[in-house]
Design a protein around this nucleic acid. Structure first.
Lengths: 215, 215
DNA sequence: TAGATTGTTAATCGATTAACAATC
DNA sequence: TAGATTGTTAATCGATTAACAATC
């Protein structure tokens, strides 16, 4: 495969899932003043093999240097660019319950370029209440906020039964990506990307793991 | 492969990750009064193929019936048992910030058998404050709570730099499974299971997906 | 019974790892 | 220079899908 096709073609799903880990670690190392990291060191820190690391990074527009490894600064920049994180990405939160409010206030998102530009709910009792600097808005305003502010991502933090309607509303309003914090499986058109946060599913996976440990 | 070895051997990771989805959907169907579901219908609802569904369910101690499909009640019971969800599972939350408090109050966990038995933090200013029915306890009490209450799972909802120390404290105190809500990669002994919630990573994956859509 | 649907084997596909020439 | 480390190809491993006999 030529360099051309490797770096411009689609990146395998398994690799895309790992790129955020490389990014986080590269930023962490940079922050600690470490300028170079080898595939072996990176692998150890992230629980991978050095082979996987080198394979993965070959999909990123960036080269390591023999005998030195990868520049943490270059790695940060290149992975950020590959993921499309070179500019702020606007998000809205749908659902202003405990979880939705916590996410709207979550500092880490802003710190890494995800800007929450609206918090929505359909419970009339909480409309206009404040969540940090946000004012809870009714779902009827979702469309105009998404259009005006060019929102790309909707975070769905509603009760189980409200998840699909919330997804429909977000899609109809123009969102292209959905972060699903519920246990519901969302049915969406092919052009829409969904990532499931799997919180309950993760606890259930852990239940299996700790059970298996016992037997 | 004999029935014996299929159902008693270790279940492939990819299958374990899907079992919670089958469980959620089976419970949803049951709740709606639907008693039978075919592999094809299940596949459509969950975005899988009927072949994957049948393969996956062959790892569960439970059989479908030709021409009718799977009993939703049987499916619920069998998957619950396989995952080890036939009894309550005790958890603690470490970190009483926005996210930790939201998770401690999250109704869905209790509803599905995960009981939060303690909320911990090391910021002296918030010790003894209430989170719903929970009182925030200092980390110094973590060990005795985990031992006394036979806690299996620790939920880590602390700032990035505090994640590894929190994991160490949980492991030292006797937890066997960790749900990591932070972006940090946790280094743990082999006997300990970690599942990453990947919230920031999921947003970054979505950033890539919506970027790729545009080009 | 005939047809629908399961359970399972075999084939395909994709992801990970091993190996090593290129190179700094 | 000699040795460490990358980038890439080929081999292995695991996950998904296709196909079909068994069965209700």
């Amino acid at each position: 495969m030529t360099i051309e096709s490797r770096t411009t073609g689609r990146i395998p799903a398994a690799v895309v899932r790992r790129l955020p880990k490389y990014l986080t670690h590269a930023q962490h190392l940079r922050h600690g003043g470490i300028e170079w990291v080898s595939s072996a060191t990176l692998a150890d820190a992230l629980g991978l093999t050095s082979s996987t690391v080198r394979q993965d990074l070959s999909y990123v527009e960036f080269q390591g240097i023999s005998k030195r490894g990868y520049s943490t600064e270059g790695l940060d920049a290149a992975v950020s660019l590959t993921l499309g994180l070179d500019h702020h990405i606007r998000c809205v939160v749908v659902g202003a319950g405990n979880l939705g409010r916590a996410l709207a206030l979550h500092n880490e998102f802003v710190l890494h370029g995800f800007r929450i530009v609206g918090v929505f709910d359909n419970a009339s009792g909480i409309i206009d209440k404040k969540v940090g600097r946000h004012r809870i808005q009714p779902m009827s305003e979702l469309r105009s906020v998404i259009r005006r502010q060019k929102v790309e991502i909707g975070i769905i933090a509603v009760p189980f039964e409200a998840a699909q309607p919330a997804a429909n509303a977000l899609i109809e309003a123009g969102a292209n990506g959905l972060l699903n914090m519920t246990a519901a499986h969302l049915l969406v058109p092919e052009r829409i990307s969904v990532v499931d946060a799997r919180i309950l599913a993760s606890l259930r996976e852990l239940a299996y793991a700790v059970k298996s440990r016992r037997t």
